[in-house]
Design a protein around this nucleic acid. Sequence first.
RNA 1: GCCGAUGUAGCUCAGUUGGUCAGAGCAGCUGAUUUGUAAUCUGCAGGUCGGGGGUUCGAAUCCCUUCAUCGGCUCCA
Length: 646
Amino acid sequence: MIKITFPDGTAREYKNGISSLEIAEQISPRLAKEVYAATVNGEIRDLTRPIDHDATLKLHKWEDEAAKHAFWHSSAHLMAEALESLYPGMKFGIGPAIENGFYYDVDPGDERVITEADLQTIENRMKELAAKNLTFSRREVSKKEALYIFKKKSDEYKTELISELADGTITLYTQGNFTDLCRGPHLPSTEPLKAIKLLSVAGAYWRGNEKRKMLTRIYGITFPKQKLLDDYLVFLEEAKRRDHRRIGKELELFTFSQKVGMGLPLWLPKGSDIRQNLINFLTGVLRKRGYKIVTTPHIGNVNLYKTSGHFEKYGADSFQPISTPQEGEQFMLKPMNCPHHCEIYNATPHSYKDMPLRMAEFGTVYRYEQSGELHGLTRVRSFTQDDAHHFCRPDQLREEFKSIIDLILYIFKILNFNDFTAQISLRDPNNKQKYIGSDENWERAEREIIEAAAEKNLETTVVTGEAAFYGPKLDFMVKDAIGRKWQLGTIQVDYNLPERFDLTYNGSDNQKHRPVMIHRTIFGSLERFVAVLIENTAGKFPLWLAPEKAVILPISEKFNDYAGKVLEILNNSDICTLIDERSEKIGKKIRDNELKRIPYLLIIGEKEVENETIAVRKQGEGDKGSMKIEEFVSFINSEIKKEIAF
RNA sequence: GCCGAUGUAGCUCAGUUGGUCAGAGCAGCUGAUUUGUAAUCUGCAGGUCGGGGGUUCGAAUCCCUUCAUCGGCUCCA
């Protein structure tokens, strides 16, 4: 007998060799149908694997990530089986579960192309196979045997993977006629894979290396119930409606022009208003926190970037230098503001007493992004960073860094960005030539970031190889409508640029000392920030950000005069207001202006003229009753003040 | 940049196998209506069907090429 301890602390005895699934069945047959994986002594395993020692056991139902993972991973294998039966000779790369569903990278052979038109066929075959209730069976094999099996299939991708694995750790999973190299875990059988949807095909380089062959990646998702799949598809449809590219067009916020060039956003008046509101708001916050605002040109001499090291690192992949007609000088479009700011630092002498120095600029920068990388406002070739650089003494670094974390959290809170993640990006220690600066500087900087984040109790994930080339960073990521993560705020510790630009300050010992530099943004860029804001709010901006606060809707043209008076009062009170004087019925006017997401609709008819009031309707909420005009003005002002109280 | 898909009026989309296939709704402009909380009615105007080349008696439709966009990959100072 073995003793199994459950998460609630209770323990029961079972016969040795019992599987998690059998335990679930003994608890309740219904439970057995709802579990998809088990954690045995901390290790996630197949439900069908026997347990031969005392253990803790957690059974995973659909709600657990571990269950979804096994479910989707098994789905990937099912898809592979379907593919192999439909397209004999197809070769397989990797097929993991991902955050939402799964994919498989396949090489269909040079003659064959899998397109979205084929997805339905594959999906149908998957359903046929799943209905056969095929069991997934696990087998441990020697490296030699594994290589033999996949060489026989001439599956070079699998043999490459196997050749890198240690002998004794290799497992195969088989369902029906399909066997795959796999660590597992998997479902007991294909039976629960009922609702299946293949979503898209895309190209993906083998092992993520652009020098290697491009495989075909097929994305799909499955659910244990059709209802869950239907809900997911509805969610995707709704997400499409929140897409910032779509709302940007609908609400006339920004546009792109082929003539101007790809990735170069054109901000329309209303979009510009939102930008300006953000800039004004942030500028106010920054001034209170001791920042000095600076302004620098959009181009810089190529030598500036040679000094900073950017030219060596990115010169070939940047917009190429602009040459002057006469003197043979070369200028680059500014790809970042830091070198300019270093030179501003150098323009005046600095004392240790003046530190830290906080220098901010809404700086527009230009970066050459590969054409296939461009994406709405989130990835563009010209964008405005809410950039700042803190120059501080080494002993101030920790506090300075922590104050920036506070600032970012504060701004995110005001904007209701609650669903963000923080990521610490370190350099790849096996690939040091990608970075500039000494090991000592890097180690110091990485330690500072890790410790500062820890002191702020910030929940972070650590990723190696994602650092900037001059220093490690702490990034704040926010998701868009369909769950893609975008980096917004970033804080980067840099010991390298101060050396390259020979930045100094006089210490109390009257000696020259080297300051530490912190690069930071909060929004990241106004472009990306507005994009994420649009997707998070579905275009219903908070009042303080809305380009237009209210629209006046006269019930008939008889009331246009009074409406005009109200309009004047509101606009003179700095409440940007429109008027809809069309000879439409009030229902129509309300509908049209609701769809424009203007926060307040002010309806004016006979009663309002008589009482010198306005009938206030809040966008998305309906009638709020009437108010005096002055009352409305102070109401709006107090609402705005509440939103951006600081 | 790479793989795949898409590209028809300002927007959303119809256009079977190449032969009145250049259409609809919304938006716009007209005129009527003068309206009380999410769509009043009338009429008009709008497109060299992304650009270029080709096949054909004939191309939105087939082929080539190019540009852009979308989904990914790679990249992201």
